[in-house]
Measured scan of single mutants.
Amino acid sequence: NQASVVANQLIPIQTALTLVMMRSEVVTPVGIPAEDIPRLVSMQVNRAVPLGTTLMPDMVKGYA
């Protein structure tokens, strides 16, 4: 099973992502693949992302 990127904390809207905000976890449905974590650093979320939420491509500006 492929690991996805999951929020390690509440990430407020417009926040630039850092490594400490994300973790990898095998979840359903599958979100952004964990191997993309380095690419996500400094990208902004376009909505508030609660703790434990799987990051989906449409939540990160410039990802999809």
Rank of each mutant, 00 (worst) to 15 (best):
N1G: 14
N1K: 12
N1A: 15
N1L: 14
Q2A: 12
Q2S: 14
Q2K: 14
Q2D: 09
A3W: 12
A3P: 15
A3E: 10
S4G: 04
S4E: 01
S4K: 02
V5P: 02
V5M: 02
V5N: 01
V5Y: 02
V5W: 03
V5F: 03
V6R: 01
V6W: 03
V6A: 03
V6N: 01
A7H: 01
A7K: 01
A7E: 02
N8S: 11
N8V: 10
N8I: 06
N8L: 05
Q9G: 05
Q9I: 13
Q9F: 08
L10M: 13
L10I: 11
L10S: 13
I11F: 03
I11G: 01
I11D: 01
P12A: 10
P12T: 07
P12I: 05
P12W: 04
P12D: 09
P12V: 05
I13G: 12
I13L: 12
I13D: 15
Q14I: 04
Q14K: 14
T15G: 05
T15M: 09
T15I: 07
T15F: 05
T15L: 05
A16W: 10
A16E: 11
L17G: 00
L17N: 01
T18Y: 04
T18E: 10
T18V: 06
L19M: 12
L19K: 08
L19H: 09
L19W: 11
L19V: 11
M21R: 00
M21L: 05
M21K: 00
M21H: 08
M22V: 08
M22E: 02
M22K: 00
M22P: 00
M22C: 04
S24P: 13
S24F: 07
S24R: 13
E25N: 08
E25G: 12
E25L: 10
E25Q: 13
V26H: 13
V26E: 08
V26F: 07
V27F: 03
V27Y: 02
V27W: 03
V27G: 02
V27H: 03
V27N: 02
T28N: 14
T28S: 15
T28Q: 10
P29I: 05
P29V: 05
P29Y: 04
V30L: 14
V30S: 12
V30W: 11
G31F: 02
G31T: 01
G31V: 00
I32Y: 01
I32W: 02
P33Y: 07
P33Q: 06
P33C: 07
A34S: 12
A34I: 06
A34F: 06
E35V: 15
E35F: 15
D36W: 09
D36S: 11
D36T: 08
D36M: 14
I37S: 03
I37L: 11
I37Q: 04
I37A: 07
P38F: 13
R39W: 10
L40M: 06
L40W: 03
L40G: 03
L40A: 00
V41A: 05
V41L: 13
S42Y: 10
S42H: 11
S42L: 09
M43R: 09
M43P: 00
M43E: 04
M43C: 07
Q44S: 13
Q44A: 09
Q44H: 11
V45L: 10
N46C: 05
R47M: 12
R47W: 09
A48S: 13
A48F: 11
A48D: 15
A48K: 09
V49H: 03
V49L: 10
V49G: 02
V49D: 03
V49C: 05
V49A: 04
P50G: 09
P50Q: 11
L51W: 13
L51T: 12
L51V: 15
L51Y: 11
L51K: 14
G52K: 03
G52S: 05
G52N: 11
T53Y: 10
T54H: 02
T54P: 05
T54M: 04
T54G: 01
T54F: 02
L55H: 01
L55R: 00
L55C: 03
M56F: 09
M56N: 05
P57F: 07
P57V: 06
D58Q: 09
D58P: 06
D58Y: 14
M59W: 12
M59E: 00
M59C: 05
M59F: 10
M59T: 05
V60D: 02
V60W: 02
V60S: 02
V60A: 00
V60R: 00
K61M: 15
K61H: 14
K61Y: 15
K61D: 15
G62M: 07
G62P: 05
G62T: 05
Y63N: 03
A64D: 10
A64L: 14
